[in-house]
Design a protein around this nucleic acid. Structure first.
Lengths: 224, 224
DNA sequence: CACGCTACCTAACAAATGTTAGGTAGGCAA
DNA sequence: TTGCCTACCTAACATTTGTTAGGTAGCGTG
């Protein structure tokens, strides 16, 4: 009854075509219903098969979820690694390019990264713990980047780098909530806006020495 | 078998003590399991009663969820309205105070706002649509605030206000993911860091006229 | 006292859940 | 042809789900 047989990929085939199709559909569903809110029957129906057949490709619902979250990280890491800007470029250009890459991973390579970002916190702890190391690895790439820039003296020294990074992550990741690839704002312009806001802020006048801190930010509270 | 009878509140009692206790526990559970991932029996057990008894206080699971999301907005709106800084204050102070208020609503008044922010996108559309107007009202309060500041000329004019606001929201809301009230970083310092980063950015040198934009950000893509 | 009200309970319901066992159709290789 | 393998199916399973009906204990008020 199926129209044709899928060709096997020539690569060592970590992920067969069938598996990928299922993951695509499942991720889309999970993105707007959550993991627990998406049933195996729904996933199966969305790719035109019956629920039981899913177990020909995955051992369990959790395995599907895990695969999606992992692919989400892969996409981010690959995007980061593929940034076409040399580390010798000026800080603003470096930053902008990496912001663009991260936003790209959220919108341009399937729903995987978006699912990862939005549902990680409510994932079963077994799934979550298995992914944490890879997640940390990606965050470390960013840490390294920011430290490199900071060591060049381009950053203000009254702001904690770890906090700055987490705030930037939040700003980027939450674009999922409102940005639309097909809308009037281009993703390149979005990246520029986010990067500029991160780098220079929104105020007209330049940064004062003391910033906004009420009495000077205590530095003891450093976060990685 | 119950130890005591709850005293009725003297206020018109929009929310009885019993209802509030249930909402508290339910919100906590939903915060780290999601709506679909949290069962009525779980909620009931967390307040020491049986599932059926929940229906003495709420008509359905959805009603519990709705009540939580609505309270989440209430907390935000109340916090915003209670900001003890006059609009005549300098922009940085105004901003910092409102950032502090929003962060407070996320961490200091129960899990409601946090639940709202993290689970809104995966809520059943019936629930979501009912809440959208109130949500918009809160966002409008921020829009008004930012426009007031902008009309004073304090903002750079090459950045879209709507985007800036959404990015700020993202930065604030995603602190849920990593900030810990009982950690070494005080929430006041967090607010300072976020506000400073929003206002001045992280770079040392002042904003250049052209910013980071590749060729000048197109303004047509204005977002509310 | 009797009444009614609140807040809970038990027990069950139909429906939906993840998962499994066993079967079938078609392609490919010997 | 025979046999195996992949990819699907049907049908059922035990469990969990939201929800409801009906009952009971304790309280305050008439």
């Amino acid at each position: 009854m199926t129209t044709h047989v899928e060709a096997r990929q020539s690569v060592p085939a970590l992920e067969s075509v069938a598996r990928s199709r299922i993951l695509d559909s499942a991720a889309e569903l999970i993105l707007d219903q959550g993991f627990a809110g998406t049933s195996m029957r729904e996933v199966a129906a969305s790719v035109g098969i019956k629920a039981g057949s899913l177990y020909h490709h995955f051992a369990s619902k959790e395995e599907i979820f895990s695969a999606i979250l992992e692919r989400g990280i892969e996409v981010m890491v690959d995007s980061f690694a593929a940034v076409p800007v040399a580390v010798t470029e000026p800080p603003e250009a470096l930053l902008r390019a990496h912001v663009r890459a991260h936003l790209g991973s959220l919108f341009e390579f399937g729903p995987y990264t978006a699912v990862h970002v939005t549902t990680f916190r409510s994932a079963p702890s077994s799934v979550r713990e298995a992914i944490v190391p890879r997640r940390d690895a990606y965050e470390a790439m960013w840490s390294t980047l920011l430290h490199r820039i900071a060591s060049g003296g381009a950053f203000r020294d009254d702001q904690d780098l770890g906090i700055a990074r987490l705030v930037l992550f939040g700003a980027m990741n939450s674009t999922i909530e409102w940005f639309d690839l097909d809308g009037s704002l281009a993703i390149d312009d979005l990246a520029d806006a986010v990067a500029t806001q991160f780098w220079q802020g929104v105020s007209r006048e330049g940064p004062s020495k003391e910033g906004l801190s009420r009495e000077g930010l205590s530095r003891e509270a450093a976060i990685q």
